[in-house]
Write a protein that binds this DNA or RNA. Structure first.
Lengths: 86, 86
DNA sequence: TGTGCTTACACGGATTGGCGTGTATTCTTT
DNA sequence: AAAGAATACACGCCAATCCGTGTAAGCACA
């Protein structure tokens, strides 16, 4: 799932949590944060700390992939050259 | 690229920035943050705010994909069923 | 050597996260 | 309607962001 913004992520996250059938409390306990931290993330994700985001993702077995625009997400080049200006 | 942690993301980001041949100053100007915000992200990404992360990614034309563990990143199912326990 | 570019760090300030603890509101189900 | 679960919100706390501004340290090359 392509994610463009914190809001995108939060909405997708909530959907996935529902699909997994788990409550915010359950998620929170699993990753040692508080229930209202999960709530805040789902409602107002802009200011959540990155470390918390990864804990939240782990709780639902969600993976983050970063991919250069235009490339398929499954492709994983190890190096990429560019035109040198000298 | 599969990312497991804030540190993973920061390292991959720095690599990509170098590959693009852009400085922290350039990135910072493009997305309206300060140079040392970029620096802090690359060195100590745990506490960076999610909103900042997305700005940083955009500056290098990097996309975030979230994918349930086990699925290929390029696959994008809109719904996913699970075995109902009732 | 010294000039320029890049990156790391500093102080002060406003804002916020995530914590502990507790409660209000909304929802689901009987 | 009533009970229970789930979620949103409250106050006070400390630590952290990111800001403005400025500087110090790192590195390259003439």
């Amino acid at each position: 799932m392509l994610i463009h913004s914190p809001t995108d992520l939060a909405q997708y996250y909530r959907d996935q949590r529902k699909l997994h059938g788990v409550s915010q409390v359950t998620v929170a306990e699993e990753i040692a944060v508080r229930q209202d931290t999960v709530s805040k993330f789902e409602l107002k994700p802009d200011n959540v700390r990155l470390e918390t985001v990864f804990r939240l993702l782990a709780a639902l077995d969600l993976e983050m992939h970063i991919v250069p625009k235009g490339q398929s997400a499954s492709v994983d080049e190890k190096t990429k050259e560019w035109s040198e200006p000298w």
